[in-house]
Design a protein around this nucleic acid. Sequence first.
DNA 1: GGTTGCGCCTGACGTAACGTGAGGGTTCAT
DNA 2: ATGAACCCTCACGTTACGTCAGGCGCAACC
Lengths: 250, 250
Amino acid sequence: MSLSVGQVSRLAGVTVRTLHHYDEVGLLCPGERTAAGYRRYTEADLIRLQQVLLYRELGFALEEIAVILDEPRADELTHLRRQHELLVRKSERLSEVIAAVERAMEARTMSVTLTPAERLEVFGGFRPEDHEAEVERRWGGGEQYEQSRRRVAAYTKADWLQLKAEAAAVLGDLVAVFEAGLPPDGQAAMEVAERHRGHISRWFYTCTYEIHRGLGELYVMDPRFTAYFDGQVPGLAAYFRLAITANARR
Amino acid sequence: MSLSVGQVSRLAGVTVRTLHHYDEVGLLCPGERTAAGYRRYTEADLIRLQQVLLYRELGFALEEIAVILDEPRADELTHLRRQHELLVRKSERLSEVIAAVERAMEARTMSVTLTPAERLEVFGGFRPEDHEAEVERRWGGGEQYEQSRRRVAAYTKADWLQLKAEAAAVLGDLVAVFEAGLPPDGQAAMEVAERHRGHISRWFYTCTYEIHRGLGELYVMDPRFTAYFDGQVPGLAAYFRLAITANARR
DNA sequence: GGTTGCGCCTGACGTAACGTGAGGGTTCAT
DNA sequence: ATGAACCCTCACGTTACGTCAGGCGCAACC
């Protein structure tokens, strides 16, 4: 009642070489061997193989899997629960990526050009965990972020068009004010900043003065934003930040 | 307005080395270089990077990605559509695995013995035909597996009744052939095996001779299957396996 | 009863997609 | 003008296998 390598490989959809490899590294050594040295896999081996393949699917390294599976206090149910948790998380992440691609398609079909920042913000969905943590820290516990995500997800093509147009108008005015040599804490600059705040509130999330000030700092601290603004006109990021803080102060 | 390797790496969540590597293999060569030899990534480069990372996430090899992206007749939207399709399919597959793990957990917590069919479902994520689907997914075909999956999901009670009736008929004929003392590699037995294969193909998934042989082996190796068949008539499991292999050989 | 074919074995080298320094220029703010 | 941060090019290391090569085990076939 045991299976050969070939039989197991066909059942599990892996190559014979893979099973040899797992034997070599001690991850899955068949319970028995025939007199001729043939590998014989027992039912327990099959269960373990199932666990191995699931953890592998989840992106664990083989060595990690060996450690996890050899924890003495973890039985099959523990592993199933853990795997379930991880699978669900992976599924959620995948949904985000899908949503991001859908947004990119929408933007593309209406030939709206996304800026690099937006493009890779969209892309943010499947960046490593550390970035997620950074986003959370930055965007204050994720409440605004969640709000923004929910609203943005429901946007139609027309919404996107209008959003883009509005943003471009605000940016254009900002550039104009900047190039006119007006002071960042002057009336005109502060008005643009205020309109920017309104724009964020209307399209993304409720943007308080406090948050707006945080954004202003982000624009000079974070190279991707700095690159974006200074890409329009050099020095614009710093100027805009001053305008935002001045506007927040009054 | 171009970005350095470090900026791009932070933006996209990949390492600098990865960007170097993509440059080395010609997958993503930055549009410009500074006088000092520094890489400068243009916006077009970022778009291409996005495509690369998405296809990579989908399991394509870098060389394949290069070929896909350099097809002259495919623009960004084409890629987005294709990626969306593949992502959705991947998500569905993941849902299946999750469901399988949930069923395994349920069975485990209630200490219910799994029926043979359920056992196969649990193994579902790793069955050969899934592997086939994986392979086909990579090469853009993959309609067949999806179809069968959708079909099973849409079965009504009447369908299930007919399925069971058909299975019972095949089993009945198998018992008859067996009890008549006919050889397992004879015409009659092989015909029953072939009908069994057709039954699987019609109701579940395309069952190749290869897969069918794997099933036959399972019937004698797995005690639950063996118990099921031998519960009908002792020795039936082994007999059926011989009939299946004989049928597969011709 | 030799041989043919298939499956299995053990090395051993190959490969993809980077990781990880080594050694050395570049840029920029202080 | 000097240190920190960033960039460059080799070049070898690593993971998880793929891919032969050379040879044994066994059931079948002539």
